[in-house]
Simulated scan of single mutants.
Amino acid sequence: MSRRSVEVTADLVLRAYRHGLFPMAEGRAGDKLFWLDPVKRGVLPLDRFHLSRRLLRTVLSGDYQVTVDRNFAGTIAGCATPLPDRTDTWINPQIERLFTELFRMGFAHSVETWRDGILVGGLYGVALGGVFFGESMFSFARDASKTALVHLVARLRLGGFRLLDTQFVTAHLAQFGAEEIPRDIYRSQLAAAVDEPAVWLVDPGQAALAAEFRSLAAGVATR
């Protein structure tokens, strides 16, 4: 007897997130999605984010212009672009379609980093209650994705978010304080945060952002 496959829709993805699951494809050319529920989950504690003085200067310098939700399609395409150290990607066309639909529904968001009008870095993910589920980031210029991440964390803190899920911990994320926690602890944190009210802030204002950047660099916990 054959097993009927379940259509993966944007609504199904949202329900999966609530239970600690997230979708990936085997590769850019893969035509199937699978669900992951890691034994160890990557999270980035919002009250212990590590922002170096050097990166703070870059973020405050104005070398990059940062926007939010302005070019989601370009951001997810950038994340799917092969790079010398990443020749393949788990973002296939179906993933792009699903998350673009989530963006239209108001759940998926992007943070974009620009230089001279050109998109050179960014990240995207899903906001659900007080949780932001980070999906992927890309960088075509030094510190471009790092700048986007700092802007993301500042907005999450200002908006009252409680949990930043990174799925896995990479060396790139570890420098900011990302850590692995057991699945049961993650699910407990998820359950406590996913229905909490939070506000996704597209433009909290430059003064509020600059103050939050400095708080991050000083190691000030989330208020």
Rank of each mutant, 00 (worst) to 15 (best):
T87E: 14
D88A: 04
P93V: 08
E96H: 14
L98N: 00
L98A: 06
F99P: 04
T100E: 08
L102D: 07
M105C: 07
G106P: 01
W114Q: 05
D116N: 06
G117L: 07
G122T: 14
L123M: 13
Y124L: 09
A127H: 01
A127I: 07
A127W: 04
G130E: 01
V131L: 04
F132E: 04
F132W: 04
F133T: 01
G134V: 12
G134C: 02
F138W: 05
F138K: 06
K146H: 13
T147S: 04
A148L: 08
V150R: 07
V153F: 08
V153K: 12
V153L: 09
F161Y: 12
R162W: 05
R162N: 02
L163H: 00
L164R: 01
D165P: 03
D165R: 05
F168E: 13
F168D: 07
V169W: 09
V169S: 00
T170G: 06
H172G: 03
H172L: 06
L173S: 02
L173I: 04
Q175T: 11
Q175P: 10
Q175I: 13
G177F: 12
A178M: 11
A178V: 12
E179Y: 06
P182V: 12
D184M: 15
D184F: 15
R187W: 13
A191S: 15
A192L: 14
A192N: 15
V194H: 14
V194C: 14
E196L: 08
P197F: 12
A198V: 13
A198P: 11
L201R: 03
L201F: 14
V202G: 11
V202C: 11
D203G: 05
D203K: 10
D203W: 11
P204K: 03
G205M: 11
Q206I: 15
Q206F: 14
A207G: 03
L209K: 08
L209W: 06
A211C: 05
E212H: 05
E212M: 00
F213P: 02
F213C: 01
R214N: 08
S215A: 14
S215I: 04
A218W: 03
